[in-house]
Nucleic acid binder design. Structure first.
Lengths: 242, 242
DNA sequence: AATACACTGTGCAATAGCGTACAGAGGTGC
DNA sequence: GCACCTCTGTACGCTATTGCACAGTGTATT
C-alpha cells in the first residue's frame, strides 16, 4: 500500500473547489496513508488533523459511557472527518477509525479553520458534509430501530461498496459485528443469507459484491435516503447497479 | 396557549447573539404559535420557514420508503429547525413535527440565508446546531441498537424534560411509541417500570417527572453524551438534578 | 344520561437476536 | 511440517420484544 499515487481531486469535496480555492487549500495538504485500524481521532480527544480520503473507508463511531459502540456514519472519498472540526470544535465526541485502508490528504485543524474563513466554497462544502453525515446518522438510527439484521447488513455493504473501487471488501465478521452492534455469529448467518441469494460471496476476511442490484432490492427500505441527500447537496455518490 | 408573551431571547441561539446581530435578525422574526401535532416541514418538502422555539418541543423524524418512522432528534428552545436550511438546502429530508405545543419565532428560509451571509456569529451558531443535532442522531442510533426499551424511554423523557418548564409532559403512549419505534403496549409497561421506581408518575396523557436524578441514573449509559456536546459548543442545556 | 371515542392495561404465542461455548478451517511463522 | 492464532461455522437455551386481540377506563359530546 501507500505509494503516493492519488491526487487530491480524487476526494469529491476537494474536486468540487474552484481553481483559486483549490490552489489555496492544496498548499496545506499533506499526503498520508491510512492503514486498517488507524484511529484518525479518538473519542473525546483533541482534533489535530482533518482527513480528506482519496480511497479507503472510515467510520464514525459513537461510544457510550459503558463502552457500547456503534457506527453512526461512514465516509470515504465523498467526505472528510472528523466533521466537528468544521464547526469550530477542537474535540471530537466520536471516534473516527479506518476500516478499509487507503490514502488521504490531511490538514491541520487550525489551518482548516483559517481556510474556511477565506475560502467560501470550501466552507460551504464542509458544512454540507456535516449535514449529510447527520442525515446518515439519522437513517442509521432508523435502521437500527426497525430493520432486522439481514437488511441492516445489506445496507451497510452497499454503503461500503459506494466508496470503494472494485467489488472486494476486506472485512472480518467480528469487525462488521461491532459496526452494526450485533453479535458476531449473527453476522455469519446474515452473510449466509445474502450469499444464499447470490448477492455476495463471503470468504475468510473478504466480502465480494456480486449482484449490487439484488442487494439494493433486498435492503430496499433501509438504503437510499441518506444517499439521496448527498447527491442532492453535493454530487454523485452511488455506484450504478451494473 | 398562544398569548404572545415569549421574547425571542428565550430561544438560546437568539439569546447568544451580540447586540448588533440580534437587532439585524430580530427584525425578520415573526411570532408564531406551534400547536401539538403541527408539522413544521414534511419529509422531502420545500422549506418555507425556519423556527426558533421559545417553548415547546419538536421532533426530527426520519421516514423510510416503506413508511417506517423514527425520531432522529429533538429540539426546543435550545435549537431551531429544519436544520437543512442552514446549509443551503431548500428541501428537508426529515419531517419536523411539534410534539409539545409552544411558541416560536419563525424566519423565511431565504431571509435566513441572507442573514447568515452578513451575521457571522449567527451563521456560526446555526452551523454548530447542525452538528449538535448530528451528535444527537448518532447517539440515538447507538441507543436504538444496544439499549432496551426501559432505558431508551428514560433517555427520551430526560431529553424532553430538559426542554420544558415544570415537570409535566403531555404525551400519549401511542405517540411515544412512534418516536421510539416500538410497540405501543411496550411503552405502557416501560412507563410502569419507571413509575415503579418512583422516577415518574404516569396518568392518562401525561408523564410527570418526579425524580430526575433517579431517571438519569436509570438511563445512565443512554443519556448525556449528546448533551455534553451541546454544552461544550453552545451553552447550558440540562436541567439540574434538583 | 347515554354514547362515542381515545387512551391505557393485560394476556399469550411466536420469534429475532443474545450469550456462551466449542469445533473446524485457513493462514503465518519457525 | 508443526504450532499457533485468527477467523468462521454451528448449537442451544434464554430473553426482550413483537403482533394480535380484547377489555377496561377517562373524557368529551349530545
Amino acid at each position: 500500500m501507500a505509494e503516493i499515487t492519488a491526487k487530491p481531486t480524487e476526494n469529491h469535496l476537494l474536486a468540487l473547489l474552484p481553481a483559486e480555492e483549490y490552489a489555496a487549500v492544496v498548499r496545506h495538504l499533506e499526503p498520508c496513508a491510512i492503514p486498517r485500524g488507524f484511529t484518525i481521532v479518538e473519542a473525546d480527544a483533541t482534533i489535530e488533523h482533518v482527513h480528506f480520503p482519496c480511497s479507503g473507508i472510515g467510520s464514525v463511531i459513537n461510544i457510550s459511557p459503558e463502552g457500547n459502540r456503534v457506527e453512526a456514519g461512514l465516509f470515504g472519498r465523498d467526505g472528510f472527518a472528523p466533521v466537528a472540526a468544521a464547526i469550530g470544535a477542537n474535540i471530537s465526541i466520536s471516534e473516527v477509525a479506518v476500516q478499509v485502508p487507503g490514502f488521504s490528504y490531511r490538514l491541520r485543524r487550525t489551518e482548516l479553520l483559517d481556510l474556511m474563513r477565506t475560502q467560501p466554497v470550501f466552507a460551504d462544502l464542509l458544512h454540507k458534509s456535516v449535514h449529510v453525515l447527520a442525515t446518515q446518522a439519522g437513517f442509521t438510527a432508523l435502521s437500527n430501530a426497525v430493520h432486522e439484521i439481514n437488511e441492516r447488513l445489506a445496507r451497510w455493504i452497499l454503503m461500503c461498496h459506494d466508496r470503494i473501487d472494485g467489488n472486494e471488501l476486506a472485512l472480518t465478521h467480528e469487525f462488521i459485528a461491532v459496526m452494526l452492534a450485533v453479535r458476531r455469529p449473527s453476522v455469519t448467518t446474515a452473510l449466509h443469507v445474502l450469499e444464499g441469494n447470490h448477492f455476495i460471496r463471503s470468504v475468510r476476511g473478504l466480502v465480494i459484491v456480486r449482484d449490487r442490484a439484488g442487494l439494493e432490492d433486498f435492503a430496499s427500505d433501509a438504503y437510499g435516503k441518506a444517499e439521496d441527500e448527498y447527491e442532492r447537496l453535493i454530487g454523485p455518490l452511488r455506484r450504478r447497479k451494473r
